[in-house]
Design a protein around this nucleic acid. Structure first.
Lengths: 360, 360
DNA sequence: CAATTCTGCTTCATCGATTGAGCAAGTAGG
DNA sequence: CCTACTTGCTCAATCGATGAAGCAGAATTG
């Protein structure tokens, strides 16, 4: 059962253009020219090109990118840092980023920083070491720091999801999205409970741009509806489920009546909120009416009491690549309108049995 | 508003060890030795080391990995290909893989193949071009093909999630997991409906190892319960939500009574199944009882009619890295017991067999 | 027929880091 | 005082691919 598997690592020397040159009775530079496609420019005969190509295939030749990149001006490597992979939003960002990069002949490398500021910086440096031509900082805690590091290395950067002030940014229109989401939840509450009450805002970091814009939209919708925001109900406690759950717990401990409507700042926070709702025993008669600034297919099935705002990932990435492709350098922040997920479509069918769905 | 941003790309020449050598009045080789940490071996004085280190920092020196890797024996780059980022299972695989790679001083690069066999191969080749030391093929449609390509380049490979026959594999114990999941759904059905009826199996590719093992577990549980499997109810239609949804649709069109219990082969398939359930109008009185071979926090909140099996990602990755770290080359398939998620809670079931389940 | 252009290559320096070999000065030992 | 180490460095080859410059020989032009 001892397999060649590792043996070959020592045995097999990878085929290089020099090996091919020798086999073809020609020079390495001819082989290189043929294999990287500009043999016409270099006036290699079609005959020799053909012969070299065939040989390369036979020998299972594979370009050594490290050598190639070292020599070339541009690496054609594009980097992205991303906070997490545990939700559909970042998942689709990464998946589409990869696809779009590949379409353009770029090699994508991605690093997940788990919202760790130190790791963000380290990851950015690592990517620069690998000679990325461009770096996309997604949801970075300190985008400007990253931009500075890139700029020192002469590398382009673009911010995604969270804006910075040093390089172009592409983000959702958080204010508009939050305004609309809050409006809907307020309207649902009024319809269901017959009275206008201030909503809870939970999740996100109070310091990040997105969260503060969403709070602004939240406030604007309240103002519009003539409802005073209850400041004790604005809980920007961080994104993690546990943080949201704890925030709810301690809120429940210090107020007498719990809100009947909530604005939850991501599916990740919603995870914690839902957990709390199911365990706290305060909503046994009726679920609170929720709005979630984020989308997840199963959340959409949780019931008709949840409204969702879905960030428009395809358009966001189109904008990112337009900046990259065009080489645009002006310091704009592009805001992409998010999508309101209509309940009923993504939402619950009218004729489903009533939740035993939610447990105590 | 015209920013330095791109200007610098042409202006700034990155600092190299030669620049530092000149500034320090020493040789490039001394600089190299100091900066990559083996200056003791190379008998550089602490004094000079100190001076060089300071200079490197001042100048914002960053190692050129392409040059470094080109020269070195091992690249310390580790690759992973993964089918999708749209579910928690692969999301956590990727996230933990990255973290564990970094812990070991390896640089992880990941490619999402979207279950496209051609892209899988292309991605594997690309990674070899970048001189990965090791490649992990996660959920690959043709792991052996990838293993062959790696072996030709003298690169180690490991299969994850789906096994192959050329290199070691780490997978879930699909049979045991499916057996337990089916048992539970059967039991739930008997309890709820007072009779033993065969379940539906939906999702996955009939040709892949995982799915066939799960079907085997599904059958075994039926046999155990004395229930005959209804062959028309085994729908290995692929993983995508639309495929599952369509399979359900056409099933509904050709049978008179729909199953009251279902084994769904992934959260991704469950997405389609749930969509169908909600739209079809056949389950207006009572939701079918479900079992899902996969875990998602929101699915867990969908109600008490869904049982879930969660694959043990941390242990799977531990196993993968143990193979890599130890340099093990024997052709084993390591099966990691999955976890039965208790509704509401979550933990390992009592009646799963004891690990470590090494096969063949 | 000589001068020029074109064709089809080859040669060689280069990218930046690494490392074996070697060298000069200092120190220890006999 | 001479040999033998040790210390602290430098030199130069090397990894594999790239592309500017150059060089024969064939083809074309005046």
């Amino acid at each position: 059962m001892e397999i060649k598997f590792v043996k070959r690592a020592t045995q097999t020397k990878r085929t290089t253009i020099y090996d091919l040159a020798e086999l073809a009775g020609t020079s390495a530079s001819a082989v290189s020219a043929v294999l990287n496609g500009n043999w016409k420019k270099r006036r290699i005969s079609a005959q020799l090109a053909e012969r070299i190509t065939r040989l390369a295939e036979e020998q299972g030749y594979a370009l050594n990118m490290q050598a190639s990149v070292l020599r070339r001006e541009r690496s054609k490597i594009i980097g992205m840092i991303v906070p997490k992979y545990d939700n559909r939003y970042f998942g689709s960002i990464v998946e589409q980023f990869e696809a779009m990069a590949r379409e353009r002949g770029l090699f994508p490398i991605i690093t997940c920083t788990r919202r760790d500021p130190a790791l963000e910086i380290e990851a950015a440096r690592a990517m620069l070491s690998y000679q990325v031509d461009c770096l996309i900082a997604t949801g970075a805690t300190d985008p400007d720091r990253i931009a500075d590091i890139c700029s020192a290395a002469g590398v382009r950067a673009v911010n995604l999801d969270l804006p910075g002030s040093r390089v172009p940014s592409v983000i959702s229109d958080n204010f508009a999205g939050a305004l609309e989401l809050t409006r809907r939840v307020l309207a649902n509450c009024e319809r269901e409970f017959g009275e206008k009450t201030p909503l809870l805002f939970v999740g996100g970091r109070g310091t990040d741009h997105n969260t503060s814009e969403r709070v602004r939209g939240f406030r604007a919708a309240h103002a519009e509806a003539g409802v005073a925001v209850d400041e004790t109900l604005v809980l920007t406690c961080g994104y993690a489920p546990e943080k949201a759950e704890n925030a709810m717990k301690s809120l429940a401990a210090r107020v007498k009546t719990l809100p009947r409507g909530m604005f939850v700042n991501s599916t990740i926070s919603l995870e914690g909120v839902m957990r709390w709702i199911r365990r706290c025993g305060h909503y046994t008669d009726r679920m609170p009416l929720l709005g979630c600034f984020d989308w997840d297919p199963f959340v959409a099935m949780l019931g008709d009491h949840i409204e969702m705002i879905r960030q428009d990932v395809p358009r966001m990435l189109d904008a990112v690549f337009e900046i990259i492709d065009s080489g645009a350098t002006d310091l704009k922040v592009i805001q992409i309108p998010p999508i309101v997920e209509k309940i009923g479509l993504g939402g619950r069918a009218e004729n489903l049995p009533e939740p035993p769905w939610i447990l105590a």
